[in-house]
């Protein structure tokens, strides 16, 4: 018996030292991010170079970040919310300030993004811009002999049961623009009610509200849906790979723009690895990954030149600040968020 317990004691001690040693050599990074942002083509070289092991969890919407962080537990080290969500996370104390002197590519990033209001508080910076793009609309090429140009096509009675919209408060942004309310991030109660009514009116046309990128691809693939909004560049390239021809377009009512930033979760024990990840993500390796996997535009125009052809560079509007400015860049809704969410739920509960 004595021998046995000694054996157990020794093996336990060995186990402890071993796990301690390995955690000193390498860290583990848990990142809460979007589909395609933790692609093996980027993660594997990063893990090999730094010894930091990366596990990714995916969100279906920006609304998933705060609840997962609010639940506590210190699970995540890095989050990649969009610019409409960053401010809530900062205000709630879920993320910590970033020492940008440790980010080598910081000065190469678009100044429009690094100076974005949603990343700053009390003179401190909380996020490193990662990728950006538009929320255009997308349709099956063979179903539309005349290319649609307006959002109103989503309300066309001809398209009964053929439309899909993102299952997100952004559906209200779409409806509001159709109503001519361009202040989509600052709608009054009446304007929200009008957008809600517009969406109710649209319901016969809706086949399904899509919740994830994969679901939208499936809806097109199985012939359920002909037209929808989309994460510009991403689902269309997945569909193109399946041999399904879809066309993206920016309607005359304009499109929303988004920009995702990497943020460090407050109190992470893996800060060292987190900074290495942020550096990789904003440099050519990470930027090339997000471009090749997702088809999104790069926040680092200097690095982008190294992996994009000149044609790709201009196709992704990397040299076109006017395009960037024309997008209605997502903005934090602040105290109005519950009103928007409630209206969106009301549409779905009718």
């Amino acid at each position: 018996m004595n021998k046995k317990s000694i054996f157990y004691g020794v093996s336990l001690a060995a186990l402890c030292t071993f796990s301690m040693a390995s955690s000193a050599l390498s860290g583990e990074l848990n990142i809460l991010t979007w589909e395609g942002y933790a692609d093996p083509s980027v993660i594997e070289p990063f893990e090999a170079a730094t010894g930091c092991k990366v596990s990714a969890t995916y969100v279906g919407s920006n609304d998933d970040f705060a609840p997962k962080l609010a639940a506590g537990g210190g699970v995540f080290d890095i989050v990649t919310p969009s610019i409409d969500t960053t401010k809530s996370l900062i205000d709630a104390g879920f993320v910590q300030p970033i020492d940008v002197s440790k980010i080598e590519a910081w000065d190469d990033l678009y100044e429009k993004f690094t100076s974005a209001e949603g990343l700053h508080k009390d003179g401190k910076i909380y996020g490193v811009p990662y990728a950006w793009g538009a929320i255009p609309f997308m349709y099956l090429k063979d179903k539309f002999p005349t290319p649609p140009t307006s959002i109103s096509v989503l309300w066309d009675p001809e398209l009964k049961g053929r439309v899909s919209l993102w299952d997100d408060k952004s559906a209200l942004y779409v409806a509001a623009r159709l109503n001519g309310d361009m202040n989509i991030y600052n709608l009054t109660d009446e304007q929200i009610a009008a957008a809600q009514a517009k969406l109710s009116e649209q319901r016969p046309n809706i086949r399904k509200y899509w919740a994830t990128a994969g679901e939208l691809v499936d809806l097109y693939k199985s012939g359920e849906v002909w037209i929808s909004n989309t994460w510009g560049g991403y689902q269309s390239s997945l569909l193109a790979a399946e041999g399904i021809e879809v066309v993206e377009f920016i309607p005359e009512e304009g499109a929303e723009g988004w920009m995702d930033s990497n943020m460090i979760v407050a109190g992470t024990p893996n800060e060292e690895c987190a900074y290495q990840f942020l550096n990789m993500a904003s440099a050519a390796e990470g930027q090339a990954g997000v471009f090749k996997v997702n088809g999104y535009s790069s926040t680092n125009p200097v690095a982008a030149r190294t992996f994009m052809s000149p044609e790709e560079y201009s196709a992704l509007h990397q040299d076109d600040p006017g395009y960037m400015d024309s997008l209605l860049l997502w903005t934090n809704l602040g105290a109005r968020l519950p009103t928007y969410t409630n209206a969106w739920n009301a549409v779905k509960s009718q």
């Binding site: 919407s61 609304d63 998933d64 705060a66 609840p67 609010a70 809530s88 408060k169 968020l337 519950p338 969410t341 409630n342 739920n345």
Partner: peptide, 8 residues
């Protein structure tokens, strides 16, 4: 959605 999206 109240525990998630609305954070309510």
């Amino acid at each position: 959605s109240q525990f998630g999206a609305a954070l309510n």
